[in-house]
Amino acid sequence: MRSERLARLLVRMYPRAWRARYEDEMRALLAETTVTPAVVLDLIAGAVREWIRAATRQPESPVSLEREIWRGWRRSLVGAVVIAAASWELARVFFLVGILPHDDPWFLTVGTLYGVTRVLIVQVRCSRLRNRALNASLPPPMLAAVGLGRMEFWMCIALVIVATSTTWSNAHGFVWWTKWFGLWLSVDLLRNSTRIELARRDVVIQLAIAERQAGQATSHP
């Protein structure tokens, strides 16, 4: 019974759109399956694959390429500002609790540069890929916004608000929260890098196919 509950819980790890389509069927299947550690691992691996697939597949409905490019740029610029602000606040908390010496400006600079360069590099790289794909008359390959995710954005806002409050900034209990936030940002960076790398490979493959097809069309008029 416990293993069935665990399996049901694991199904909740799948993306929402996937669950809307397959959750009932999969639960029906799990009700008839002995839930072993191998099944649990299979469900976890399946959930990871579906999240990657959801993040990298092309949208089903037609979208405006121009609009998506501008939307990506806007989100990236907002993301750069928010990450820079969050880095400054994080550094300030580190100063307050004595983790960093007060005369060390590098942490502030590195945090800011990290935020700004991260989103700009990602955005420029994606724009170049999109333009190449557009020139090859392919559908937009990667329209998922690659700036900040919605949750990351609101977490940064919350950090800035909480950290600027005098009462909270002086509290030592605030340290665990900043550590958690640092870890969370790192995981998110890894997630975004994976998503972008997978999408980049997808674009490279599509371009190679298009170029091969164009070559075949030229050699066989």
């Binding site: 399996a7 397959y22 299947l29 799990l30 399956t33 191998a38 099944v39 469900l43 959930a47």
Partner: peptide, 11 residues
């Protein structure tokens, strides 16, 4: 086939 692999394939 585990449920994750089966429904990954079906999808």
């Amino acid at each position: 086939l585990g449920p994750g692999t089966l429904y990954g394939g079906i999808a």
